[in-house]
């Protein structure tokens, strides 16, 4: 276990070095946040029926989404692991007395965490200082906040376990692009990254609730905004745990399978 914590730590230190990337990210996400909010504002002022989420809730949702983008966006790839596989440096990873799955899981989690740590605070601070109605509001209660934190981290782990499956598929395809583009197109949509799930048509909502992607983004954010009440939030956390178990199990089995057929070419 200590090994996984160490790799996590080292990756975290490594990730915290990239300040320029983080700064650029903050600027971009701030812009996107404002843009999204203005679009929603326009829609809400002309809404014919009462939307299922209040504008206030949507605004908080958007800010959280921007602040924790690195946490929850499936399209963020860890180039290090991709390089390991395509360059053959992976040979070394196999010479370690560790499970490769655990090792990579720790690395990927740390990568996202370090990215989010650098970005979330500036965005959130500015979002709190903005004038009404553009500002993010505090959660209703401490319980809500704690539930949000718990579901956010579990969501991160669900997401990482999904992305692990994509990295494992790279052993077979060699190219990260194919499986990733497909999975991320579907995943980002159904995780509520583009529009919050309650604003989707009913039939799409059904699909979204069936898939695990929403557990990473849509669910924790709606817990924060209070759109999902604490009682339901607990239910959601259990769902997260179940999905996490299933995805990790599948990942482990798949990893063992591909390890048998691996080929490391060249001298």
């Amino acid at each position: 276990m200590k090994a996984y914590i160490s790799v996590f730590k080292l990756r975290l230190i490594n990730g915290l070095q990239y300040r320029a990337a983080a700064f650029a990210g903050v600027a971009t996400q701030f812009f996107w946040g404002i843009m999204h909010i203005m679009i929603y504002e326009a829609f809400y002022t002309n809404a014919a029926i009462i939307p299922p989420m209040s504008l206030k809730q949507v605004i908080s949702y958007v800010w959280l989404q921007q602040a924790f983008l690195v946490f929850i966006a499936l399209w963020i790839r860890d180039n290090e692991i991709i390089n390991l596989i395509t360059s053959g440096n992976i040979a070394y990873e196999f010479c370690r007395p560790c499970s490769l799955y655990g090792f990579w899981f720790a690395k990927l989690t740390a990568q996202r965490l370090s990215g989010a740590l650098l970005r979330c605070f500036p965005i959130l601070i500015v979002a709190f200082l903005l004038p009404e109605p553009y500002k993010i509001v505090l959660p209703d209660s401490v319980t809500t906040f704690l539930l949000f934190i718990a579901s956010l981290f579990l969501g991160l782990m669900v997401l990482v376990s999904i992305s692990m499956l994509m990295y494992i598929s790279m052993f077979i395809t060699m190219m990260p692009v194919g499986s990733m583009v497909m999975a991320t197109a579907i995943g980002d949509f159904f995780s509520g990254m583009i529009i919050p799930i309650p604003l989707m048509p009913a039939w799409l909502q059904k699909i979204a609730y069936f898939l695990p992607f929403r557990l990473a983004a849509d669910m924790p954010f709606r817990v924060y905004t209070g759109h999902i009440p604490p009682a339901h939030a607990l239910e959601g956390i259990i769902t997260q745990l179940v999905w996490l178990g299933v995805l990790v199990l599948i990942g482990h089995i798949a990893m063992n399978k591909v390890q048998k057929r691996i080929v490391v070419q060249g001298g």
Binding site: K2, A3, I5, S6, V7, L10, I13, R96, P97, C98
Partner: peptide, 12 residues
């Protein structure tokens, strides 16, 4: 040295 320390933990 950071890589070495990681290896220390990996190999216990």
């Amino acid at each position: 040295i950071d890589s070495y320390e990681l290896l220390r933990d990996i190999y216990k």
